Amino acid sequence: MSTVLTTEDVRNLRTGAHFLACTIDPTAIYVYAEMIQRAMEDRSVELVTVDELAPDDLVVAVGMVTQGLFIADMPPVGDEFLGCISAIEARLGRRVRAIYSLAAANINGIVPLMVGLQSSLPVIDSDPMGRVFPLISQTTLNIGNVAIGPIALMGVTGERAVVEVESPQRAETLVRALVTELGGWAATAMYPCSAHQLKVHGVHGSISRMIRIGQILDANSSVETKLSLLADLLGTTRIARARVSHIESLSRPTDLGLPAQPSSVTLEDETTGRIVRLEIQNEILLVLVDGAVTAAVPDMVTLLNSEQGTVVNLDDVQVGDVIDIMKITAAAQWYSETGLDLAEPKAFGIPIVHPRRRHA
């Protein structure tokens, strides 16, 4: 059943997108949310399920790809995504019938609403990650062998490119190079596929899930109530409530042009004395408790303020802070052999095998 979203939905979506990413710099999420809320004064955006589309309808993922430039430093002027969608339509000779988010967190969790407002296309309540990953090849559509191309990009400079590419890994290399040349970020449209392909290989309920997370976190209720509701909704578990004792910035190199701000955070659980270590590369990739792997990408890990139950940004973490470390299981596709090949710690240059693979 389709839904017309409200400005309150956008506020909640913003919070949910922030929670699922625990980002280095969440400014862009808030900038985009304000733009969308203003645009909703005279336009509406429709959220649909993939089942409401004809199986052969052409649908396309929209999202920002960044390389060294925070979007808030130079926000889009507004027509970049429309240009990308038009380029895909011209290349394929077909009309795009609906759009979906490239990722279900961070800035890309909210971008499709603006594109839906601009284009009058419905936004599908599905995505190909179920969370956010740094690489455009790290998708459930890739796991399902759905082609990534053609890919349309439009950047800060107003220049546009269409990349004819089949291999998602090769697409990653080409797109990163183009994004750098286009000024540091680009609006993109990629993974053009049928609604049926998205239904089979996508992750569903993405946007409505983020809205519900926002409703929980923005409510005037106790932290324990929020944690209980999140556990019911997402199956979240609290790894620890711990105090930050040490923050270390590292210069560890990364492969594949991964955008990275590598660092480690050490915390102490003052109730049990356990030592918790977070390994971070734009997001939390690994959690060790007394040296044992407790969470590892593709698991999601996010941080909450232990007193307010609000999301803690990674770059705001300071020695002495008491933080709830939350673990969320990713979509089932990510724990397949192919999914782990794409997204376990080894894919990020950390030589650790995901615990699920050992027990397979």
Results as ranks from 00 to 15, higher is better:
residue 91 R to W: 05
residue 115 V to W: 01
residue 52 E to T: 13
residue 164 E to G: 12
residue 270 E to G: 03
residue 211 I to D: 04
residue 338 T to F: 05
residue 234 L to V: 11
residue 299 D to H: 10
residue 169 Q to A: 15
residue 48 V to P: 00
residue 2 S to D: 01
residue 272 T to D: 02
residue 149 G to A: 08
residue 123 V to R: 07
residue 331 A to Q: 01
residue 169 Q to G: 04
residue 299 D to K: 08
residue 178 L to C: 09
residue 24 I to K: 06
residue 155 G to D: 00
residue 333 Q to S: 15
residue 348 F to H: 12
residue 174 L to S: 08
residue 269 D to P: 04
residue 193 C to L: 02
residue 205 G to D: 02
residue 195 A to S: 15
residue 90 A to E: 12
residue 98 A to I: 05
residue 141 L to N: 01
residue 296 A to I: 02
residue 302 T to N: 15
residue 297 V to A: 15
residue 341 D to C: 03
residue 1 M to K: 13
residue 104 A to K: 01
residue 128 P to L: 14
residue 348 F to R: 06
residue 286 L to P: 00
residue 120 S to N: 14
residue 96 V to W: 03
residue 147 A to T: 06
residue 330 A to G: 13
residue 54 A to P: 00
residue 243 R to W: 00
residue 20 L to T: 07
residue 5 L to A: 06
residue 78 G to P: 02
residue 127 D to Y: 11
residue 239 I to T: 08
residue 191 Y to Q: 07
residue 358 R to L: 14
residue 352 I to P: 01
residue 51 D to I: 08
residue 87 A to D: 11
residue 247 I to N: 04
residue 50 V to T: 15
residue 117 L to A: 06
residue 94 R to S: 13
residue 299 D to E: 06
residue 324 D to T: 11
residue 253 P to Q: 11
residue 21 A to D: 10
residue 231 A to L: 00
residue 7 T to Y: 00
residue 360 A to S: 12
residue 90 A to V: 02
residue 284 I to E: 00
residue 78 G to V: 12
residue 196 H to M: 09
residue 242 A to Q: 00
residue 44 S to Q: 05
residue 15 T to V: 15
residue 333 Q to L: 13
residue 200 V to D: 09
residue 82 L to H: 06
residue 210 M to Q: 08
residue 6 T to A: 08
residue 318 Q to L: 14
residue 358 R to Q: 10
residue 204 H to R: 08
residue 153 L to F: 00
residue 122 P to M: 11
residue 149 G to T: 03
residue 100 Y to L: 06
residue 61 A to E: 05
residue 340 L to G: 11
residue 46 E to H: 07
residue 259 P to I: 10
residue 99 I to K: 02
residue 306 S to A: 15
residue 24 I to N: 04
residue 56 D to R: 13
residue 86 S to K: 14
residue 314 L to P: 00
residue 2 S to V: 10
residue 295 A to R: 07
residue 293 V to N: 08
residue 174 L to T: 07
residue 198 L to W: 05
residue 253 P to R: 11
residue 149 G to E: 03
residue 33 A to I: 07
residue 144 G to M: 07
residue 343 A to L: 07
residue 315 D to F: 08
residue 28 A to V: 12
residue 345 P to Q: 08
residue 188 T to I: 07
residue 5 L to S: 01
residue 119 S to C: 04
residue 73 D to A: 13
residue 270 E to V: 14
residue 70 F to I: 02
residue 160 R to K: 12
residue 339 G to E: 08
residue 153 L to A: 12
residue 199 K to G: 02
residue 335 Y to P: 00
residue 93 G to H: 11
residue 199 K to Y: 10
residue 340 L to E: 05
residue 47 L to G: 04
residue 324 D to K: 10
residue 352 I to D: 01
residue 309 G to D: 05
residue 351 P to H: 09
residue 119 S to Y: 09
